[in-house]
Each structure stands twice: as structure tokens, then as C-alpha cells.
Amino acid sequence: MSLVLPKLSVYLAEDSALVLRRLVALLESPGLARVVGVSDDATVAFDEILRLRPDVVVADLHLRVGNGLELIGRLNSTRCTATKIMLTNHAASTARRAARIAGADFFFDKTTEFSQAVSEIGKLAGKRSAYARSH
């Protein structure tokens, strides 16, 4: 018997409308995942993530209000089990280190690693599907 799990759920904390449209299209069009929420405000995102309980959180370093480091740190303090991905244009080693310290599971540069971020979410979705097929 195979277990049917809903699609991987993803929350996007991002302040660029262009990046949001691109991410939603790349995740939802091929059926990789379902975007369950978006915000450009770290406080709003935090509250919505706790309520929605997505499988993955993708956060930009700089948001319109607050930042992704604070968001990820606060989520980790609540023992949020979502996979946390930092996706930003600020890819200096100090930003990578700060993201790791805050508790990000992955860090990707929007300019050079955007497709890798989407690919990683695809891998997470694939693991979820494999788990469902085996149970």
C-alpha cells in the first residue's frame, strides 16, 4: 500500500516581485511543490510560517521589513522543522556564515545558484514522494 502525501509545501519570504514570480513558476508549474504563503515582512512571515507549518521556508537576507537571518533564527528557537533555505544576492562569506549560525540548512546566491536552490527543493520533493511510495 502506498501512502499519499500532499505536495511539498513552501513558504517564500522575499521582497522582490520578480523573484517571487520566478520561484512560484519554477516550483508550481512542474508540480514540484505548492507555495502556501509569501511575505516581504519577517514578522508577518514568522507568524504565518508557525500557522501554516510548511515543509520548506525560502528566505531572502534583506526583506522590506526585517531580515531572513532574524526570521530563520526565530523559527529555530521554536523548533520549527521546516527546511530553511537562504536565497539572496548577498553571497559574501560573512553572509553565508551568518546564515549557518542562524540555522539555515542551505544557502544559495540568487545570481549564480538560483537553479541549484530550485533543484534542492526538487530533491526534497522527490524524497517526500519516495517516502510515500515506500509506505
Rank of each mutant, 00 (worst) to 15 (best):
R133L: 15
S93A: 15
A45I: 02
N89L: 13
R51N: 02
L27Y: 09
G103D: 06
I49Y: 09
A45T: 01
F46V: 01
V58P: 01
S9P: 01
E28Y: 05
G31L: 07
N89T: 11
L5W: 05
K84M: 13
A132R: 12
R97Q: 13
S134D: 12
A33G: 06
L12S: 06
A17F: 10
E70N: 13
T112L: 01
G66F: 08
D105K: 00
L63A: 09
L69I: 14
I49W: 09
S93Q: 15
D41R: 02
T43G: 05
L20M: 11
L124V: 02
L12C: 05
K123D: 11
A130V: 09
C80H: 12
T88W: 07
K127T: 08
V38D: 00
I121N: 08
A33T: 05
V56F: 03
L75H: 13
I49Q: 09
E120D: 07
T94C: 05
L69H: 03
Y131F: 15
R128K: 15
K123Q: 13
F107R: 06
A91G: 15
S119D: 13
L5Y: 12
A42W: 01
L8E: 06
A13W: 02
S129E: 15
P54R: 10
V65G: 01
R133I: 03
T43Y: 04
R51M: 03
T111M: 05
E48N: 12
S115K: 04
L8M: 06
I101N: 02
S134F: 07
V4M: 10
R53Y: 03
A25W: 04
R96T: 02
T112W: 07
V35W: 03
V57Y: 02
A59E: 05
P6H: 13
V58I: 14
A98R: 13
R22C: 00
L5H: 08
S77A: 15
D15K: 14
L23H: 06
Q116S: 10
L5E: 11
R100M: 07
H135E: 11
F108D: 04
V19D: 06
T83R: 15
R22I: 00
A25D: 10
I72D: 07
A82I: 08
A125M: 10
A91I: 00
F106I: 00
G126F: 03
A82N: 10
R79Q: 15
L50R: 15
G31P: 05
V44D: 11
T111F: 06
R22S: 07
F114Y: 15
R21S: 14
L87G: 08
R96K: 14
V58F: 02
M1N: 07
A33Q: 09
V44W: 01
T111R: 14
F46Q: 03
A59T: 13
R74T: 04
A17E: 14
V65S: 14
T83F: 12
R97I: 03
E113W: 02
K7T: 00
L26N: 14
S16T: 07
A102T: 04
A92W: 08
L50Q: 14
